[in-house]
C-alpha cells in the first residue's frame, strides 16, 4: 500500500468516484430511512455525514458498502468496482479477539487468498502508519480502546482501498484519545491520499476532519444541505483554534440545529 499514494486535487477538480442517485430506503414497507439521497463522492474527498440519530447516516454507509440494497435509486461506481475497493471502520473496533494484531490486519488479504508472507510488508506498513508496529503479536485484549481502534483503521487501510467508510469510529472513546486519533487520521489521509466518508454526531469533529460536510435530517432521513470546509490540509492545533474553524463550526452547528429543529 505504501507505494500507492493517490494525489488529492483541490475541491472542484476531483474526478468522481461514486454517485448515489435518488436513493430511497424503506424498511418494512413503512419506515422511510432514507429519502431521495443524492451524493457525488469524488476521489480524495473527506466527507462527513453529520446529523441527529435516525437521519439515515449509517443506512447510507450500509447501502454504499452493499450490505443493504436501495429500495429505489442506485449507487454507481466509476470504473471497475470489486472487493478491496472498500475499507470499513465501525463504531466498535470489531477485531477478532482470537487473532493477533497482525492477523487482524491481514484479514482483508487473507479473505482474498493471500498468505501472510506475501503481504507481510503491507501489514507492517499499515501498522507502522498507525504507530503499532511493535504490537504485531499482541492480542486485542492487551490493547487500550484507542489502540484497538488504530488496529481497526490499519485493517481498513491495508489494501489501499479506493474508499474508506467510517461509522462513528471515535464516538465511544474519551475526549483526549479522540482528539489524538482525529489528528492521526488526517496525517494518514495525507500520507495515502484515500477518500473517506465519515459518519459523526460531532460538529467539531466534522469541521476539523472533512472538506465536505453533508448535513442530514431525520424522518425521513435525507440530505438537508452541504457545507464546504476549504481550509487546507494538513490541519493541526492551529486550525482548531483559528477564527476560520470557529466560523465553520458555527455554520455547521446552525445547519445541525436546523436539522434537529425539523425533528422536533
Amino acid at each position: 500500500m505504501s507505494a500507492l499514494r493517490r494525489p488529492t486535487l483541490p475541491l472542484g477538480e476531483r474526478p468522481p468516484l461514486l454517485q448515489m442517485q435518488a436513493v430511497d430506503k424503506v424498511f418494512g414497507g413503512t419506515v422511510v430511512a432514507l429519502k431521495d439521497m443524492n451524493l457525488v463522492v469524488n476521489q480524495g474527498d473527506f466527507i462527513s455525514l453529520l446529523g441527529p440519530s435516525g437521519c439515515g447516516k449509517s443506512t447510507a454507509l450500509r447501502i454504499i458498502s452493499d450490505l443493504l440494497h436501495p429500495t429505489r435509486g442506485k449507487v454507481i461506481w466509476e470504473g471497475d468496482h470489486g472487493i478491496g475497493d472498500l475499507g470499513v471502520v465501525f463504531q466498535e473496533p470489531t477485531l477478532m479477539p482470537w487473532a493477533t494484531v497482525a492477523q487482524n490486519v491481514w484479514l482483508p488479504y487473507r479473505l482474498r487468498g493471500k498468505t501472510y508472507n506475501t503481504v507481510k510488508d503491507e501489514v507492517l506498513e499499515a501498522l507502522r502508519l498507525v504507530g503499532l508496529e511493535n504490537f504485531l503479536n499482541a492480542y486485542p485484549r492487551e490493547l487500550s480502546g484507542g489502540m484497538k481502534m488504530r488496529v481497526s483503521i490499519a485493517r481498513a487501510m491495508v489494501t489501499n482501498p479506493r474508499l474508506i467508510l467510517m461509522d462513528e469510529p471515535f464516538a465511544a472513546l474519551d475526549e483526549i484519545t479522540r482528539h489524538k486519533l482525529n489528528n492521526d487520521l488526517l496525517r494518514l489521509k495525507d500520507k495515502i491520499g484515500c477518500t473517506v466518508i465519515f459518519v459523526t454526531h460531532s460538529v467539531f469533529e466534522s469541521v476539523f476532519l472533512s472538506d465536505r460536510i453533508v448535513v442530514m435530517a431525520a424522518r425521513p432521513g435525507r440530505v438537508l444541505q452541504e457545507l464546504r470546509v476549504d481550509a487546507p490540509y494538513p490541519r493541526g492545533e492551529e486550525f482548531r483554534t483559528s477564527a476560520e474553524y470557529a466560523a465553520h463550526t458555527r455554520a455547521a452547528s446552525g445547519a445541525l440545529k436546523e436539522a434537529m429543529g425539523e425533528l422536533a
Partner: peptide, 14 residues
C-alpha cells in the same frame, strides 16, 4: 458471531 464482524466478512467478499 459479532454482527459487525459478520458485515465485515461480507464486505470483504468472504
Amino acid at each position: 458471531v459479532d454482527h459487525n464482524l459478520r458485515d465485515l466478512f461480507r464486505i470483504y467478499g468472504a
